[in-house]
Each structure stands twice: as C-alpha cells, then as structure tokens.
Simulated assay, not measured.
Amino acid sequence: MKLTEVKLYTMEMRMKTAFTTSFGTMQDKTFLLIEAKDESGVVGWGEGVAFDTPWYTEETVKTSLHMLQDFLVPMLIGRELGHPDEVTGLFQSIRRNNMAKSAIEGAVWDIYAQLTKQSLAQAVGGTREKIEVGISIGIQPTVGELLQVIAQFLNEGYRRIKVKIKPGWDVHVIRQIRARFPDIPLMADANSAYTIEDIALLKQLDEFNLMMIEQPLAHDDIVDHAILQKQLKTPICLDESITSFDDARKAVKLGSCGIINIKIGRVGGITEAKRIHDYCEAHGIPVWCGGMLEAGIGRAHNIALTSLMNFVMPGDTAASSRYWYEDVIVPEVTVDAGYIYVPKEIGIGYDVNRDIINRYAKNVVVIK
C-alpha cells in the first residue's frame, strides 16, 4: 500500500439543531474530509473531527489542515506501508495533533480494508453484527424542553440518554429527569466544567443511579479524578483526559475512573483506540465510543470500532438524521430499535456522496 494522492476537503455543513455544552453552542459545523488514493487506484476516506474553535482540545480545523498539508501527508505520500498500524509509529515525531493524525490514518485503514477485501470492522478485529447506541443531548433552553427531547429519542428507540451538565444546570435538572423517567439508562456529561472543590455538589448525583458522570474535572487531569472517584458511588468516565494509551494505563492504575470513553480522533486514530480497548478489556474497564458530531465518514469509522467486544455500553453514534439534513454517505446511518447494524461490505461499508461533498466543500487541497 502506497499513497500517491491525498485531497483535503474543508467542509461547512449546517446541523439540524444547535448543540450546546458547557463549552458553548454550535450549529454550523466546519470539518475536514480526507480522500486518499493508493498506487492501485483504491480510494479511502477519513474525517477530521476538530472543531473550528479550540473548545474540546487545542486543535482546530485550521491547525489540522496545516498539520496534514505541511507535515503528516508528506510523511506518507510515496511510502510503502504494510499495515495501518505503521502510521502511528511514523507520526511519533509529531507531538499531539491527534485529530489531524486520525483523519489521514482513517483513510489508510479504509484503503487497507479494501485491499484485503474486508469490511473495516473485520479489519480492526470487530465481531459484533450490530451495536447498541445511545443519544447525546445538549443543554436545552428549559428543563421542560429537555424532557420533551428525551421523550422523543426514547420513542425512537435509543437505548441510553446522555445529558450535558454545567454549574447551575446539574442536580436540579437530573432530579427532574429522574422524576419523569425513573428507570432509563442515564448519564451526565460535564465536559470538564467542575473542580475538585465541587465534590459535595457532585456527590449529590449519587442518588440518581446514573450509569456514569463523564469528565467532571479538568481535561488534562487524572489525579483529582482519582480523589473524586474515591468519594463517589457513581463511576467516573474519562473522556478528554484520555489522549493516548499511556493516559488510559495511568488512569486505570490510579483509579481515576471506572469507565473510559474512546474517541478515535481524540486518541490519534484507530490503532491507538484499539490498544486502549484491549488494555481496558484486560483490566475489567468497560469502554464505549463517544461522538464528535461527525458526518457519515467519521460515523462509519466509529461503527467499525464499536464492533470490538469490550464496547459494552451504548455509544454516541446516532443516526445521520439526528444531526444532518443530508449526509456525505449513501445510505445514511440509520438506527433500528436502538441498534446500528455493522456493515459487511468491503471498506467503510457506505458509498461517498460526491455531489454532497462538492456542494459543501469550501476548499480542496490536493497533495501528490
């Protein structure tokens, strides 16, 4: 496998509804699509999940484009690769920039799956035929509106509800959700909105039988999370704190969490995500696949990864129609009674809709 050409598409697409977290609100989403071609003419696709502002990590769409164009893609063009796992090693001299690395690595995995005549799920070692999915709901204008949104997605069959919380929008909100929906699988995602000084407040969430509290403390912390976890009955799930295999290993050894959210872009690609999955499986730590408001290509990669056996909790890979008026893949991702069926077709399992890509691409960079 040898890449001969890579195209970097800067996309701008409007989501159906605004998505609000403790970071801020987003409705118009800018992101990257990567089209890579190998010497035999096989084309693979990847998606960059960085936002256009450095809310979630320090990366942005522009920094990812810079890293891909000036460093990462030139390191791969014309180089013989035996397996996608080699990409991680080649990129070791470049610090962090995990979302940029993941974007091109995902395209390499797609090419590899096609060359070996496997589905992407098979290529990564997945065995599940269908995956259980939940839904992530942003902060709503009122609790009443939040309850209506929850009811809507439960009626659509989603098997777990995740709600965003932040100071001032936390205990009283969860209490009202539980009063209305006493038995649903429910988790709260804080996106690093609290500090260790908020232990007393966070302990109040123990009464609501939550599946987990996701990333309550700082994005780069595993020490205070270990202190907090000892005080809580509810499992802590780490998200932003886990950017590599070593982060996961240290967090598990410190007792910083009981669950880990694996996002391909956050950890630098499928290869690193698989390593984290395998380590957590060996140490009895359940994992699930988080979402970054992906379009269809990123969604397809998430589905393939989630077919691995230790993804035992519903992920955030909702149907395409949850976010998009029209997606960049055909057919779009659909949810059937709370499940997504893992594609068996060779590669990512979906066709790319070039008409949609061309319509929403604001810029294309070609590297040969």
Rank of each mutant, 00 (worst) to 15 (best):
K7M: 10
R14P: 14
T17Y: 10
Q27C: 03
D28C: 09
E35D: 08
A36W: 08
E39N: 07
G44E: 03
W45D: 14
A50E: 07
D52T: 11
W55M: 06
T63A: 03
H66M: 12
L68Y: 12
F71Y: 15
P74W: 13
S93Y: 13
R96N: 11
N98I: 14
M99G: 08
K101V: 14
I104E: 02
W109P: 12
W109S: 15
A113M: 05
S119Y: 11
Q122N: 09
E129I: 07
K130P: 01
I131W: 05
G138L: 06
L146K: 07
L154A: 09
G157Q: 01
K162S: 04
K164I: 13
K164N: 14
I165C: 12
P167Y: 15
A179Y: 08
E197P: 00
A200F: 08
E207N: 08
E207F: 08
F208R: 00
L217A: 02
H219T: 11
D220S: 14
I222L: 10
V223C: 03
Q229K: 04
K230W: 13
Q231E: 15
Q231T: 14
L232S: 05
I236C: 01
E240M: 05
E240F: 07
S244D: 04
A248E: 10
K253W: 13
K253A: 12
K263I: 15
A273P: 02
R275Y: 07
R275A: 07
G291N: 09
G291M: 08
L293F: 07
E294I: 00
A295N: 06
A300M: 01
A300S: 01
I303G: 09
L305P: 00
T306H: 04
S307V: 06
L308M: 01
S320W: 03
R322A: 09
V328A: 06
P331T: 11
E332P: 10
V335F: 06
D336K: 12
A337K: 12
I348T: 02
G349R: 00
Y350C: 04
V352E: 06
N353M: 05
I356Y: 10
R359M: 09
Y360M: 13
N363W: 11
I367F: 10
K368P: 02
